[in-house]
């Protein structure tokens, strides 16, 4: 009996003592030798599990890999969802979020953002003969989205007459669309394109409507750590200026990929 109590006391004490000393992210990542990045694990082509290697790959993984290379540390990717990514970052589970996250003002209260590394906008993915062509047609219909995403909140504002059904991930929302349980899936065009193309018959679906909202993606960083933020921003710019960013982009979104999106925007470059 006494042994158990002692054991419990010791483990409790260890938990408390294990709290890390306060240091900048840049130093703590270098000291640990690992950059822990929160990424999507089922979002073609941003981040998804490759069937052959069972490893998470994608555009955002390449991007954080470049950051890790620059730091000279190992990359450790951790799957996150739209609902878990911000808590995981603020809790220190991960050092950086690269998970199709829109840079929103409200999120600035919790975390900081890098400069924009991807630009897209929110649209609707529908069945070709489903009768939905725009946000106006959604009145009285069900729309699928993901919990904790901006898309969920935007579409409710744009069309208060629709019912939003939120899933853990977008592919689940797409599956519901496929099976006819919702009449549209709404999120960023780039994600919708990935969903559509991952289906066996992409021709059955189309992306419709005006942009409901612009969606610039930024990497999520811990609040108030300007050294680390500078490092990330400067590295992103360097990748763009040296053409490495464009190469990475073309690997996942180029003309000869199924997820073709022309690169029609410029990264913010500081002189």
């Amino acid at each position: 009996m006494r042994k158990i109590v002692k054991l419990l006391a010791i483990s409790l004490a260890m938990l408390v003592l294990a709290a890390p000393a306060f240091a900048g992210k840049l130093e703590s990542i270098k000291a640990a030798g690992v950059l822990k990045a929160g990424v999507k694990d089922s979002q073609v082509p941003f981040g998804y599990v490759d069937e052959k290697t069972s490893k998470i790959v994608g555009f955002e993984i390449d991007l954080v890999q470049a950051l890790a290379d620059k730091l000279g540390v190992k990359l450790d990717v951790k799957p996150v969802t739209s609902a878990t990514r911000i808590p995981m970052l603020t809790q220190g589970d991960i050092d950086i979020i690269a998970a199709t996250m829109t840079h929103k003002k409200e999120r600035e209260d919790q975390i900081d953002f890098s400069i924009t590394y991807f630009q897209t906008g929110q649209k609707l993915l529908v069945k070709k003969d489903g009768g939905v062509k725009s946000v106006a047609d959604l009145a009285g219909k069900k729309v699928g989205s993901a919990k904790g995403s901006t898309s969920e909140q935007n579409v409710k504002k744009a069309q208060p007459e629709c019912t939003v059904v939120s899933f853990e991930t977008y592919p689940e929302a797409f599956l519901a669309l496929k099976q006819g349980k919702v009449q549209a899936v709404t999120t960023d065009e780039s994600i919708l394109l990935g969903l559509k193309n991952s289906d066996e018959k992409p021709g059955d679906y189309e992306i419709v409507g005006e942009y409901i909202s612009p969606e610039p993606y930024g990497l999520g960083l811990v609040e108030n750590d300007s050294d680390f933020r500078d490092f990330v921003n400067l590295t992103l710019m360097e990748l763009w200026e040296t053409g490495k960013f464009q190469a990475m982009y073309n690997k996942w979104f180029g003309e000869d990929t199924p997820n073709y999106i022309p690169l029609n925007w410029q990264m913010e470059l500081w002189p």
Binding site: S82, A83, I86, P87, D109, Q110, G144, K147, G148, Q153, V165, S166, F167, E168
Partner: peptide
Amino acid sequence: MAVGVMELTYMARQIEAYTFHG
């Protein structure tokens, strides 16, 4: 809540996502 039924836990989670006051 895992399949989108808006019951108590779903709503609590939703508030967490909107306000960060989970």
